[in-house]
């Protein structure tokens, strides 16, 4: 399993969060933590999620699959940023 920290911007539309969570469950992605908060722009929300990927699955693939969701505006892999913040 590899651990990744992703940050998404999504449109505040009904079902946007559900579609992301369903993608995780149907693609076998483990969710360690998940938090949703209003973004600076009122019509967007920011979703921070830490996921574990099964062997053979890449985070690039997951980011592309998340990017296909119409209500997802952007996806950033922050795994490396987080490591820097911790001074690792």
């Amino acid at each position: 399993m590899t651990r990744h920290s992703l940050s998404l911007l999504l449109r505040n539309e009904p079902g946007a969060l559900a579609r992301i969570v369903v993608l995780f469950s149907s693609r076998g992605v483990d969710v360690e933590s998940l938090s949703l908060a209003p973004a600076e722009r009122g019509d967007l929300s920011r979703l921070d999620v830490v996921v574990d990927l099964q062997p053979g699955r890449t985070v690039v693939q997951l980011i592309k699959q998340l990017g296909r969701i119409v209500d997802v505006k952007s996806v950033v892999d922050r795994t490396h940023d987080e490591a820097l913040e911790l001074g690792a």
Partner: peptide, 14 residues
């Protein structure tokens, strides 16, 4: 039906 079809639709509206 929106929730039921989440993993099998490109997008959906209610």
């Amino acid at each position: 039906i929106r929730s039921i079809t989440l993993p099998i639709t490109k997008h959906s509206y209610q």
